[in-house]
Design a binder for these strands. Structure first.
Lengths: 139, 139
DNA sequence: CAAAAATATGCAAAAAATTCTCATTTTACT
DNA sequence: AGTAAAATGAGAATTTTTTGCATATTTTTG
């Protein structure tokens, strides 16, 4: 039950929060903007305010339920935090996103942070490019 | 002379552009938002419009003169492109930014992109944390 | 399980960041 | 210097996100 996740996060299990959480869990795209979430909820007939979506997503972020990203265009997109940190490889043409994790990179990052005496709270690696499909289209 | 850089980039050497370029070259902080640039110019008595600053920075980005970043807060900050790609280690308390480059990481990134068949156009790695100074302050 | 207390919601208004419009000015080229 | 092309500044407009507040929903507790 999703309401348990909310409770554990110290948040009341309200209808809008449950809906948003479910959407993030079930949506085909894992990376959604507040606007995306809002529209998707309207489409399935759920009547939530956009302000609530923003508020809830920020609360989810604070609670560690979701992760906020700022991709190239700068707007906030959110993905469910499944607990496994990963990096992102994004197609600038079609928007496809590949998630990956590389141990060598993670270790190097650690040692770089250590060398500079930083206590790391967060880190992200984004690679932008053109995916195989889009390469074919354009040639 | 900076006007040469502008000409080479296919941009007219106008006063606002020269001022902005100079500022980016001489500013103590290498990472500035449009607002920062605007205020800094006002302070030294240069009368430019904020819209111009935004326009010019975007043109500089397109021309490859500057690089745009979206750090944690999501707003656009710009740094002069000196031609040497590097990654960033940022203190979330005081805003200090350490630039670094790690060959191992770069190589791994390449091979990951290759594995997925992507043609990479751009990539960035941000690490957020608390710098040594701020760690001492808070303890 | 009803009533009170605590919190969340929706809406509209406000901020904040960025872009656009357009009349005027500046630059580049004879 | 004179003209065409391009850039600027000021403010309006957009876009994204946040806030204030009256109402509604949840949780607590008696």
């Amino acid at each position: 039950m999703e309401s348990k996740n909310l409770k554990q996060a110290g948040l009341k299990a309200t209808l809008p929060r449950l809906r948003i959480l479910q959407l993030l869990e079930n949506s085909k795209q894992r990376h959604l903007s507040a606007e995306d979430v809002y529209k998707a909820l309207l489409e399935i007939g759920e009547d939530v305010g956009l302000a609530t979506v923003y508020r809830v997503l920020t609360q989810f972020e604070t609670a560690g339920l979701v992760i906020r990203h700022h991709f190239e265009n700068g707007l906030s997109v959110f993905e469910l935090n499944k607990g496994h940190h990963h990096d992102h490889l994004l197609c600038v043409k079609c928007g496809q996103i590949v998630e990956f994790i590389d141990d060598t990179i993670e270790k190097r990052q650690h040692s770089i942070a250590k060398k500079h005496g930083f206590e790391i709270t967060d880190h992200c690696l984004y690679m932008y490019g053109i995916c195989p499909k889009c390469q074919k289209k354009n040639s």
